[in-house]
């Protein structure tokens, strides 16, 4: 812990770690596939982006730091698309919603 940069980098890494942990806990606790994807994809995307931003603050504008910024952009663009693909394919392969769900317009429109 020498400079102020490293301390801020550690703070960002710790915040990202907490969000990652809550995302994985949501993957275990929630009752059906849509809620699981829903909670975990948000928390894990922002958490990993925060860890990568901490790496950028630690290394500065070097080889590793700039690549970490590129990786953040790539992650934010692709992670929601994969969640969307998984949710749609789960619905089309016949996975039911949770029994306490309110409405399902998608199943009504597909018939």
């Amino acid at each position: 812990m020498n400079s102020i940069n490293e301390i801020i980098a550690y703070i960002f890494i710790a915040i990202g770690l907490a969000f990652d942990f809550f995302g994985c806990l949501g993957l275990v606790r929630f009752p059906d596939i849509y809620n699981r994807l829903h909670s975990s994809i948000k928390c894990v995307t922002l958490g990993t982006s925060s860890i990568l931003f901490g790496l950028f603050l630690y290394k500065g504008f070097t080889h590793t730091g700039v690549k970490a910024l590129l990786c953040i952009g790539f992650l934010v663009l692709t992670a929601p698309v994969s969640a969307h693909v998984l949710a749609r394919s789960a619905h089309k392969s016949g996975v039911k919603l949770w029994e306490k769900s309110v409405c399902d317009k998608y199943a009504e429109d597909k018939k």
């Binding site: 969000f19 809550f22 995302g23 806990l25 949501g26 606790r29 929630f30 009752p31 059906d32 849509y34 809620n35 829903h38 909670s39 948000k42 928390c43 922002l46 958490g47 919603l97 949770w98 306490k100 769900s101 309110v102 409405c103 399902d104 317009k105 998608y106 199943a107 429109d109």
Partner: peptide
């Protein structure tokens, strides 16, 4: 950021406060 804090609150609440559904 608001979405993450909201998601973390729903995860650690003991009675899972939600009414899920697919809307159009």
């Amino acid at each position: 950021l608001k979405a993450n804090i909201d998601g973390a609150y729903r995860v650690i609440h003991p009675s899972l406060p939600m009414r899920p559904g697919i809307v159009k």
